[in-house]
Design a protein around this nucleic acid. Structure first.
Lengths: 178, 178
DNA sequence: GGTGTCATGTAAACAGTTACATGATTTT
DNA sequence: AAAATCATGTAACTGTTTACATGACACC
């Protein structure tokens, strides 16, 4: 799945500039791209070429000109047909597991410190996600069903990290017991 | 984290050829790389240049020559120092969440089919992971602690997919209730 | 006077995938 | 006769990140 579809999705809720999209994607817990300029501005050019969006240049006195992008009918059709596409499995890339796989070289204290460090990272990540959710920069609420879905989507990520947290806590406890 | 460290880890258990490493990584549930040739053969050249591995060419009568790679002392030191490195957060890239975020265009039946398709994908993935585990192509068992860690590592991935499965099942049920 | 926001973009590099290429042997 | 296994490698492409570049205004 490409970032272009996420961009189309956002534009289906509101016309936006590249800069707006960057911020929305950066702040999103669900859209996992970093929100770097390179990808966004290039994607917008491509979407324009494909006729899935249009843009209107807005000159401003005391700031750089804006390009406000709007989704086209063709873009909305594309978004709809993508929604019916077979879902992809999540990509779970946990480099920590590979690290732990060869952590038997460590002393019991070093190993516990490693596990604790992971636990702390996860805790911080959960706080960060909750803070992002609290700020709630962007969320469409067109229907009650959409609101419900967005709540469950937000939960998903946080609860995945919580699950990981429980996993590491159990290991630490079991290792302490010996 | 780079695939080179995973390769070093495998070589710390047993000398292997590029082809062996490819199969081990492909069959691993934890080492998430696809195991494509390009990455593996390039990494081996780089590890050789860095002096972290050595290789011995073994000519064979009726098959192509093998290059058997062995970890060096420098390589083992590198592996050990990496084990002490601060852990990275898992990367959870769930394109399905982005898809679901704009799935309000769908009818109730279409939405349920989408969720069901995800559920089925997850179920198949879990079976595949369990099958991989059953085959158990590769697992070091040097100490009881290492055996324990490898069990927990294997569990991690499967249980993450199970967690995802529960999440989607709950949504389907709640949507049915309305 | 420095930092942050708004707003556009480019360059260079790295990571990772699919597909191609060769060639012998073994299995179906 | 076709496909899989062993074993090496390369080419082309996509995706993604970090950093660079510009320029005005606002806030502390």
């Amino acid at each position: 799945m490409s970032i272009k579809l996420a961009i189309l999705g956002i534009l289906s809720c509101q016309p936006s500039t590249g800069y707006d999209l960057k911020k929305i994607i950066e702040e999103s817990t669900v859209m996992y791209w970093s929100g770097n300029n390179n990808q966004i501005y290039k994607s917008l050019v491509q979407l324009l070429e494909q006729g899935l969006v249009t843009h209107e240049v807005q000159h401003q006195e005391s700031s750089p000109s804006k390009k406000i992008y709007t989704i086209t009918d063709k873009g909305e059709a594309e978004l709809k047909s993508w929604a019916l596409t077979p879902p992809e499995l999540p990509e779970l890339k946990k480099s920590f597991l590979t690290q732990l796989a060869w952590a038997d070289l460590l002393s019991p204290e070093e190993l516990d410190n490693l596990l604790l460090a992971y636990e702390n990272e996860l805790n911080m990540q959960i706080l960060l996600l909750q803070e992002k959710k609290r700020r709630g920069l962007f969320a469409p609420n067109r229907t009650t069903r959409e609101i419900y879905l967005w709540e469950r989507i937000d939960d998903n990520i946080v609860s995945s990290y919580r699950h990981e947290l429980n996993w590491v806590r159990e290991i630490r406890q079991e290792l302490k017991r010996g």
